[in-house]
Amino acid sequence: MHIIKVPCSSANIGPGFDVIGLALSMYLELHITTKPTEPPTPTNPLNCTITYTGVGAENIDLDPSANLLTRTALYVLRCHNQRSFPPGTNVHIHNPIPLGRGLGSSGAAVVAGVTLANVCGGLNLPKARLLDFALMVERHPDNVAAALYGGFVGTYLNELNADDMARVEVPLAEVLPQPAGGEDTGLTPPIPPMDIGHFRRFDWSKELKAVAIIPDFEVSTAKARGVLPLQYTRKDMIFNLQRLALLTTVLSDSPPNPDLIYSAMQDKIHQPYRSTLIPGLTEILQSVTPSSHKGLCGICLSGAGPTILALATENFDKIAETIVGRFKQEGITCEWKVLEPAEDGTTVVEVPDS
Rank of each mutant, 00 (worst) to 15 (best):
L24S: 01
V288H: 06
D236Y: 04
V219R: 09
T221W: 07
F199C: 08
A245K: 13
P141A: 02
A173Q: 12
M26R: 01
G331R: 03
G16N: 14
P192Q: 10
L130T: 03
I60Y: 09
M136E: 04
A11W: 00
L77W: 03
D163E: 15
L74K: 01
E159P: 06
K206M: 14
V227I: 13
P256K: 13
A245T: 12
Y75W: 07
T347F: 01
H140L: 04
L296I: 14
V324A: 07
Y273R: 12
T188W: 01
G345P: 08
N143S: 05
I213D: 03
I50L: 15
L296W: 10
V338L: 15
H198G: 04
N59F: 14
F199T: 08
C297M: 11
D353P: 06
I60S: 08
S275R: 12
T289V: 12
V111R: 04
I191K: 13
T72N: 01
L301F: 09
P193E: 08
T41G: 08
T43R: 14
W336R: 00
P177H: 14
A23F: 02
S205C: 15
N240A: 15
R129N: 05
K318N: 12
I299Y: 06
E321P: 02
L311H: 11
I308G: 00
T37R: 10
P341A: 09
P96Y: 00
G121R: 09
Q231S: 15
T72Y: 02
T51Q: 09
Y149S: 03
P306A: 05
I13A: 02
N12P: 08
T155P: 08
H270D: 05
G295H: 14
A66H: 05
D132V: 08
T185Y: 05
S105L: 11
P215H: 04
G345I: 07
S252N: 14
N143M: 02
R129T: 13
N161W: 14
L311G: 11
H293K: 13
D344N: 15
L69W: 12
H293D: 09
C48L: 13
V55R: 00
T89Q: 07
T333D: 06
T41K: 10
T322K: 15
I332N: 04
T37V: 06
Q329M: 09
L24N: 00
L24P: 02
V76E: 01
F202C: 14
I308V: 15
S106C: 07
G345F: 08
A224K: 06
Y232F: 15
T248N: 10
F17I: 07
R274W: 11
A342W: 00
K294H: 13
D164F: 12
P189A: 12
D259L: 14
F199P: 01
N118V: 05
G102A: 06
T89K: 10
K35P: 05
G151Y: 06
S25G: 07
T221R: 00
G16E: 10
I278P: 04
D259H: 13
